[in-house]
Design a protein around this nucleic acid. Structure first.
Lengths: 298, 298
DNA sequence: AGGATTGATAGGCTTTCGCTATGGACCTCC
DNA sequence: GGAGGTCCATAGCGAAAGCCTATCAATCCT
């Protein structure tokens, strides 16, 4: 059986006329008759009872009409689904991010994406950077947002945005009175830092300090950036943190820009080089476009 | 989308190789590539991710594979159903018959038919002959078994079998002692008859009696042949009944053949002339064959 | 009875389909 | 590390199908 034959048959059965059906199909009547005959021959069954005055489906024809319509509908629906998947409008998207990035600019990016592709099931996996890399290689996640470029060969990274690194100090601290702070002035302070083993950002900050001529004295080392503000407020010292964190912390803490030469922490979109999902490609394309726009605007 | 393309795609997706799939499809590899390309172009989506070493479905391809398999299966199932209906192996069959015919030879005919077409839903409507005709014209029933040929123009009748008409008398009756009885001898008896208005059989019997030189004296007239044996046993008189009734009545009654020139009641298969159902045609064909066979054998 | 309408058939033309031959990328084996 | 082998894509040709116009046979309507 052929889909063309099926469509033709349905048209004739519905119109109860070869001539009218042919008109509807933008076809002349003879080939229509021939196709119906071929279909009947293949099924070994008369589907239409025809006199020169009227055409009516036989019982077999009624069944064929019913099932045929369902089949055509299913085909259409399958085509739509495949097209949607191919266009990246349907599917799943697993993102990896740390809490600070998620609560930072990522949230607005996700909102923008959801407007474009509302049917994509998004899941954000909040986890430490090292685990994010593993998850990407695992195919547990499709995309990660990470401060720093991972060196794995199968992964591709694209700069998403740059965040200035700022100083976090207790409001009572003398540096809190200052409008800006030079990096070198922090040499004598106690520092709260992230674990450099699991965090590119921590390593980057460390490098910046070394470049400024000192190795930060560590009073406390944490794995989750979320813990830093509380420790600062509790008087454990100062910390160099991404500016985006400033938006979500208590009043006990002051954030001060580092000047001159403020360090910038780069956040990257990271994904598998061989990623095939159109949802992922779509997201990346949209994200880069959206972010560059934002950068230009403000 | 074309079914051929769908089949081709499924083969390639399953085999994960154009070359192998082409072999399976009894096709050379180039047209296979072309069809897949055409399908992908139509859907605007890559369905297969191909390198020179391996072929794998994309996410869209996976969906297409799943839905496509279901569609092909549905098509096959629809074809099977239509073929079965066309062959008269699936459907419904509504038969009309009087109780005496049903409990007579019809039962064995239905048993024979059920062996050939076990999936056909048969329903027997036990009703008076006049109602049977109406039901046939109504399309409430497809086939009736009636003693006598209805004169309606839209109905066709085929002789199913002939039954000898025999005399039913109480065992205590003098005629019960006889081996055979001539029709003329019943002139002086009281008769239990069916309503001649609704029964061809009753009219036929009446005609036979008139031919034999008398008009039967009616002691009781009933509409249901089933009532006759009880009335005979109760001493209401005698009755001329189809031989088949003899098999299902009590010991109080004797059945005696009419000799010479036994009257014969003909039972006909009656059906609409424009009947289209293959189930009905099948049943009629089988019934006539089966019955003529039975006639020859016994 | 004759014109009109309907589905079936016949013959010619265009499009599609499948084949062989070949190209380009990649893997494997010596 | 280059030669051969394998795989999918492309090109060009012959065969088959699909579609069209013209016509026929049957039926309906006036």
């Amino acid at each position: 059986m052929d889909l063309r034959q099926l469509r033709y048959f349905i048209a004739v059965a519905e119109e109860r006329s070869f001539t009218v059906a042919a008109r509807r199909l933008n076809l002349s009547q003879p080939p229509l008759s021939q196709h119906i005959q071929a279909l009947e021959a293949e099924l070994g069954t008369q589907l239409l009872y025809r006199t020169s005055r009227k055409v009516e489906p036989t019982q077999a024809g009624e069944a064929m009409l019913l099932r045929g319509r369902a089949i055509l509908q299913q085909i259409k629906s399958a085509e739509d689904e495949v097209r949607s998947i191919g266009a990246g409008l349907i599917g799943t998207l697993d993102l990896g991010a740390t809490g600070s990035i998620l609560r930072g600019r990522l949230a607005e990016l996700l909102a923008a994406y959801r407007e474009v592709a509302p049917l994509v099931r998004m899941t954000v996996h909040e986890q430490a950077p090292a685990l994010q890399i593993a998850a990407l290689l695992n195919r547990t996640t499709n995309i990660s947002l990470i401060r720093g470029v991972p060196r794995e060969r199968d992964l591709t990274s694209k700069l998403a945005w740059r965040e200035e690194v700022v100083l976090a100090v207790p409001r009572s601290h003398p540096l809190a009175k200052r409008k800006r702070v030079a990096l070198g002035e922090l040499a004598s302070e106690d520092h709260v830092i992230l674990d450099p083993d699991s965090s590119d950002f921590a390593r980057y900050v460390q490098t910046c300090c070394v470049d400024a001529g000192f190795l930060p004295r560590v009073s406390q080392q944490v794995v989750d950036a979320q813990s830093i503000p509380s420790l600062i407020a509790a008087g454990f010292g100062v910390a160099l943190v991404p500016q985006s964190i400033a938006r979500f912390t208590t009043a006990d803490i002051a954030f001060r820009p580092i000047r001159p030469s403020p360090p910038a922490a780069d956040v990257f979109l990271v994904f598998r080089e061989d990623e095939t999902s159109m949802v992922v490609h779509n997201f990346i394309k949209l994200a880069l476009r959206y972010l560059s726009q934002r950068r230009r605007l403000g």
